[in-house]
């Protein structure tokens, strides 16, 4: 090959390389703090201001008197997973039996809330999701008696009605909204509308926001505990896609293997032809 030809090929290579690497610097995204389980493929968002006490076996975060743990259980039913989580983390409350609310479908799956009866030390609420035969449990213990509940927004579309319904589920069956605060409260980057409810002489506070067709209501307690909603909403599970990776690698090997094999076969046939032609030429000479 001449020098000019080599230069032309080099120019083509440089052109292709230039196109591939002509990158513009992209702005760096803010990275959120995540707990990622090393083998169980689930990830838990850790809101700012929460202490991370997680271990490789489970996620555990705390803020004040509120504690949240996340665990996964292969197969098993929801009640069994909840019971095991409670036994491991709060053995003194292991005898409690939860009431399971109707499942609510959010962007990241279908969740079921487990409401445990209130204890003197605080309230216990569980969130459960089943995905690919694995049960994922988020258990929240609130020393401030916060009760996080999400439920479909009632037909009239009113957040007040949703707050009253949530309060009813939390045990305040006759509570009625008397005030809806104008100034939202921000928790974990999300704005919650404060509400005040009364049930007889008892005054109850609540914080609520809507997400899609659902209302997220924190009944009673501290507004900071509404961070559990961000944790539930940002909880995600890495899909199991290894089979597709193997398929992709196999397909690549097949395509390139066929090309190389066809070149090998063609070369072998041509060499055989060449030998025959050389033999013929020699015989003719």
């Amino acid at each position: 090959m001449s020098r000019r030809a080599r230069l032309m090929i080099a120019a083509a290579l440089l052109l292709a390389a230039g196109a591939a690497f002509a990158q513009e610097a992209e702005p760096q995204r803010d990275l959120v703090t995540l707990y990622s389980h090393p083998t169980e493929r689930y990830h838990v968002f850790i809101p700012p201001g929460w202490r991370d006490d997680s271990t490789p076996q489970f996620a555990q975060i705390e803020r004040g008197t509120t504690q949240i743990v996340a665990r996964s259980f292969p197969a098993g039913d929801v009640e069994a997973a909840l019971a095991q989580t409670l036994t491991e983390f709060l053995p003194n409350l292991a005898d409690l039996t939860p009431t399971l609310l109707d499942p609510v479908t959010l962007n990241n799956g279908t969740w079921q809330i487990a409401l445990y009866p209130p204890e003197e030390a605080g309230t216990l609420t569980g969130f459960v999701q089943r995905f690919e035969d694995v049960t994922y449990v988020l258990l929240m213990f609130s020393g401030a008696d916060s009760r996080p509940i999400f439920l479909p927004i009632p037909a009239d579309g009113s957040l007040s009605a949703a707050v009253e319904a949530a309060a009813g589920l939390a045990g305040f069956t006759d509570a009625a909204v008397i005030n809806e605060g104008a100034e939202p409260v921000e928790v974990a980057g999300q704005a919650y509308t404060p509400f005040t409810l009364t049930q007889g002489a008892l005054e109850i506070n609540a914080f609520a926001r809507t997400v899609g067709g659902s209302a997220f209501v924190l009944v009673h307690g501290l507004p900071d505990d509404a961070a559990i909603f961000s944790i539930v909403l940002d909880f995600f599970i890495t899909p199991e896609t290894t089979d597709y990776l193997y398929l992709g690698v196999a397909a690549t090997a097949i395509v390139l293997g066929l090309l190389v094999f066809s070149m090998f076969l063609r070369a072998r046939a041509l060499r055989a032809d060449l030998r025959t032609l050389q033999q013929l030429k020699a015989d003719a000479a």
Binding site: I9, A12, L13, L15, A16, A19, A20, L34, S36, R41, H43, F236, T238, P239, E240, T241, T242, Y244, L245, G248, V249, T252
Partner: peptide
């Protein structure tokens, strides 16, 4: 963590296009 292992196909998928581009450029 969003896509799982299948994202690793990316290490073949994208460079192979530029390899094809180089060959077509030739």
């Amino acid at each position: 963590i969003d896509q799982g292992s299948v994202q690793r196909i990316f290490y073949i998928h994208m460079p192979s296009f530029f390899g094809a581009m180089l060959a077509f450029g030739a």
